[in-house]
Design a protein around this nucleic acid. Sequence first.
DNA 1: CGGCTAGTTGAAGACACTCAACGAGCGTGG
DNA 2: CCACGCTCGTTGAGTGTCTTCAACTAGCCG
Lengths: 241, 241
Amino acid sequence: MSLDARISDLDRIPPKHDARWTLGITRDAHLPDPVDRTGRTVEHDTRETIFDEGDRARSIYLILEGAVMLSKLLPDGRRQIIELLGPGDVFGMTMTGTHDVNAETLRPTRVVAYDRKAVDASPALQIMIAERMKTQICALHDHAVLLGRKSARERVATFLMRLIPGRGGMGCIGASRGRQDCATVAVPLTRQEIADYLGLTLETVSRAFSQLKREGMLSYGKHDEVTIANVCGLCHLTGSH
Amino acid sequence: MSLDARISDLDRIPPKHDARWTLGITRDAHLPDPVDRTGRTVEHDTRETIFDEGDRARSIYLILEGAVMLSKLLPDGRRQIIELLGPGDVFGMTMTGTHDVNAETLRPTRVVAYDRKAVDASPALQIMIAERMKTQICALHDHAVLLGRKSARERVATFLMRLIPGRGGMGCIGASRGRQDCATVAVPLTRQEIADYLGLTLETVSRAFSQLKREGMLSYGKHDEVTIANVCGLCHLTGSH
DNA sequence: CGGCTAGTTGAAGACACTCAACGAGCGTGG
DNA sequence: CCACGCTCGTTGAGTGTCTTCAACTAGCCG
């Protein structure tokens, strides 16, 4: 499946509930229009820290392009990756004045940083942020089910499904008739990061990938690309359907 | 520890990050003031369903008194309890028009149901809801760490700490000097519900309670009451500090 | 080529789950 | 009043999944 095919997939997105960080392609349709220019645009390279847990919260951030992961650490070093965010998502909201998570980029990323005071003064920004918070809460609910109740295999299958635009969600478009039900996605995370996202160890993640590969469900492409041979089949392995 | 002692504990709450559903005592200081009367007040008995996953979302709900749990089911019956909510908390927000979780009361509960249209027309309500969403997102972040990275023992310890007002959070007041560092809490959940909240089985939860009891960390009182003998000690068992 | 990082795979062990039996508490009905 | 049934909780024994520890490979860059 070519890159073009993937981009045209993106064009017919049913939006809302997709993973937005998948390919890091800006979906302007979902960005607040016009993007409020009271904020500063900031560029970050891959794997740069935007803020750490405990930092004083100065701004709220809107992703224009790229991908950001939010994580938390326990004192002994255990890490949980909480959320993966993409264009249109916001982060950095807090009630306490300090950030409750670490925010780090997964790829080159542009964000708009809005001063908290500017947000307080802008009903339009507040509404935009409130809308995004609703979808994030929904995503966190789903992730709680994954972390609390799914097997390793189901977690990995769910993770992969989240990378495929328009599939697996409530607005799943289903397999295109008469065509192979396959998809190619970029996985810009290491095994360790996937493990920390899914509440597993990197070895368990690796074994789950290997097993799916052995079964012909997926194959590896160049770099960090993975081709899923049977999207509907994978979807059934998630435990959600 | 008497009931009076517990209520006076409640009076010196540092708010914000406490479990708000602990004892079901309304903390008026945290309710929107005045409570917007565009909403209908509805009373529910213990363990009544307010809405189910998939239901059309008509209203957004504010808890005046009582406790509500949000849960999700997988097709094969596995359940994850996502959030436990109390007075001042809101629920029922969604981007999709349908609820993504089940909402059920844990005790006799009064809620205000705001029509979604009424919310859209009321900036004051929207701001109140946005504020509550921020603290819920923070709680969901913490819960993701629990579900993804903590041992059974740590999960149960964390659960119990969440029931103790003013302790364990970032604004922990510490043990009162010169006094026993104990606390009595009501646990209005069955072992199965606690298990579904913590991502465990009911047997594992029961064993963790039994072990803590054997070690003298807690003892059972009447009905659903549990006395923690050493709050700071329990806090160290959570893995978070 | 050597050193580094990321990923894979194997073997052994731990922790939580499953299955099962039993007991406590609390209504109902004889 | 006590027997009965029901739910909820506890405890034990055995199992399984995931983790831990370790060795080894592939790719990348100096």
